[in-house]
């Protein structure tokens, strides 16, 4: 579904990602792991068209994405829940969700989708008239995911959904992500919190200092020491 092929990304003279290739197939949950500064967020930003590519190509459902702007990629079914949640703090929960559906009109299915979100995240229904800024970290993360779902994506990219959340909440969020698979959704999950994610991901990639260090089944990384080896680049899939 998503094919990232030989992508490099530069920030001025600094190279953040070098020749990384990554593939996500229909119905998969793919984990993209790696330490801080590995280039994971840069890669997702590039996939959304927020960062220019220095080299390589990105294809989504067989279509070349390089020519399309961010807005058109969302319309094609590619969605990113950004790092740090980025909930609109001055908008209410309902307004946040409304804006999440910016690519389509407010028809009957729009209201159905809002109800679906409230079903998935009952706490949001309770807080529907509160502003995004007044929610707790976990609630904001749920809102951010729900908001992404409102665009009816076929591929959902989640950037560090567990960032800064209490362990109990993290477990809840991961359970939700796992449930999303039942909704015909393909997921690319970026995490530093590797061990939790590897339990339910199908495949995994490990990025370190801008280079791909591992790609293969997630289960393989669960073996003792394997992840560490992948981080320092000694594990061969």
């Amino acid at each position: 579904m998503l094919e990232i092929d030989g992508v490099s990304i530069n920030y001025g003279p600094v190279s953040a990602v070098r020749d990384v290739s990554l593939k996500v197939e229909q119905g998969e949950i793919v984990a993209l792991l790696g330490p801080n500064g590995a280039g994971k967020t840069s890669l997702l930003s590039a996939a959304m068209g927020l960062r220019p590519l220095a080299a390589g190509s990105i294809r989504f459902k067989g279509e070349d994405m390089r020519r399309l702007d961010t807005e058109s990629r969302v319309r094609r079914g590619l969605t990113l829940t950004p790092e740090g949640r980025k909930v609109f703090a001055n908008l209410t929960v309902l307004e946040n969700l409304d804006l999440g559906a910016a690519t389509r009109a407010r028809g009957a299915d729009f209201h159905a989708d809002i109800e679906m979100c409230f079903e998935l995240f009952p706490i949001l229904a309770e807080r529907r008239h509160q502003t995004g800024g007044s929610l707790s970290g976990g609630e904001q993360q749920m809102l951010a995911i729900a908001r992404s779902l409102m665009s009816r994506p076929s591929l959902l990219m989640l950037d560090e959904p567990s960032l800064g959340l209490a362990p109990r909440i993290v477990g809840q969020i991961f359970r939700l992500i796992r449930d999303l698979r039942q909704r015909d959704l393909t997921i690319l999950l970026v995490e530093q919190n590797a061990h939790e994610v590897l339990r339910f991901a199908d495949r995994a990639y490990v990025l370190s200092t801008g280079e791909c260090r591992y790609s293969g089944p997630a289960a393989r990384l669960q073996e003792a020491g394997a992840l560490m080896q992948a981080y320092i680049g000694e594990l061969v899939a």
């Binding site: 959304m48 961010t70 969302v74 908008l91 804006l99 665009s151």
Partner: peptide
């Protein structure tokens, strides 16, 4: 209103 705080994320909404 959202753009007043964060234009990038508004674009991410499509």
């Amino acid at each position: 209103r959202a753009a007043a705080l964060d234009f990038t994320t508004v674009r991410l909404m499509g």
